[in-house]
Design a protein around this nucleic acid. Structure first.
Lengths: 209, 209
DNA sequence: GAGTATATAGTCGATCTCGACTAGTTTATA
DNA sequence: TATAAACTAGTCGAGATCGACTATATACTC
């Protein structure tokens, strides 16, 4: 379980998923991923894509089928998935669904050093975060509704978006709560917290940030 | 906002936070981060640490103060934070707290290709995930309680752990729900979903995975 | 019909990141 | 007392990743 994959960028999973359907060239993968909104759940950069495709080829998980050229455009290498590629795709997918993995988020990093700011400022920043989350989540919710109602996509192809929205709503609720708790002094005495910042400017020595 | 930082690894934030308190050498940072549990929220690797410390020095955010040697151990370079470093630390921390950023998780990548497996298998894998989340969360909950009760740490220094636990509980609830919905055919007809996998083995061509 | 924006289809170089390895020191153990 | 394990303190090279850049074709606009 959780074995190291030879190509570990999740973009490689997406490439194999697409080639599982039918052979195509790299740029077409980008187009399809965008159309289907998969770039919202798998980070997609041209430069990563081409290097990932190269790595998959090197590992024998995909193979070039033909090289076509239209007009004087650059050549396009059409790839197809191999048997080993299909197995790798399925094994990886199963692992991702079965095994929770620890993820490090930017916000968690920020929270770790919350004591590095005085409580009033922390509260102000978190309130601003609440505002931003509210509007971003509203936007996501309506895009999701559109995808389902207007485009008529079954939820099966939108679960990852529902998941993301759920996480963001959970974060929003939590941040609202923590703001109240800070104000109520429930994370620790506000005067002690403030006192970590009294030697302002130079070496406002925290004791346990 | 969200400007590119010269040193972008969040470990650099942790390094600056520690040096904000007092000068120290790299290995001591590791020890302190571990003691305080910060390695649970900021990914900590020796190799990354030394390269991050080097980058911070290059950018003038920290400077070496002295080089000490005890016995015949390797030399230890003691660093301190500069004025620019303090500013950078505070600016970065504010940004992390204020601005939600999109994070790409492994699970979201897996969910994106859920249709790549037949519904029965998807359900079985997700149920296994539920079991693992239950026991991992239970473990986290008790470690958190210990840190608060036994060690008497104020919540201020544990917010990031509370945040992580909250997210994992939210995920757990969501996965439980989605399993039920799949079984009830609420993500789309189960027979249609199954039919994506009837041409088994070779080219079980999905239509919109 | 000239200029501008956008889509197509990538390449390149610099930096970042990680896993594996080195190597001395102290403590436990049989 | 030899020797294994664990702690201290890093280095190094391979590969991953990203932002910036190149270059053609087509559509759009004034």
């Amino acid at each position: 379980m959780a074995s190291k994959r030879k190509v570990s960028n999740p973009l490689a999973l997406a490439v194999m998923a697409l080639l599982y359907e039918r052979p195509m060239h790299a740029y077409e993968m980008v187009t399809l991923m965008r159309e289907r909104g998969k770039h919202e759940s798998v980070r997609l950069r041209y430069s990563s894509l081409y290097s990932v495709v190269g790595a998959l080829e090197r590992e024998g998980l995909i193979v070039p089928r033909e090289t076509v050229r239209e007009g004087r455009r650059p050549e396009r290498k059409v790839y197809e998935i191999t048997g080993a590629g299909r197995e790798e795709f399925l094994a990886w997918l199963r692992e991702l669904l079965r095994e929770p993995v620890k993820e490090y988020t930017q916000f968690a990093a920020g929270l770790s050093f919350l004591a590095g700011l005085p409580p009033e400022e922390a509260v102000a920043l978190l309130k601003e975060r609440v505002r931003r989350l509210e509007s971003e989540n509203e936007e996501m919710r309506s895009r999701l509704a559109t995808a389902m109602e207007q485009l008529g996509l079954p939820r099966l192809f939108l679960v990852e978006a529902e998941h993301e929205l759920m996480l963001r709503e959970a974060e929003l609720g939590w941040v609202r709560g923590i703001v109240e708790e800070i104000e109520a002094g429930k994370l620790g005495s506000l005067s002690e917290w403030r006192s970590l910042h009294t030697g302002q400017g130079e070496g406002g020595g925290e004791s346990d940030v």
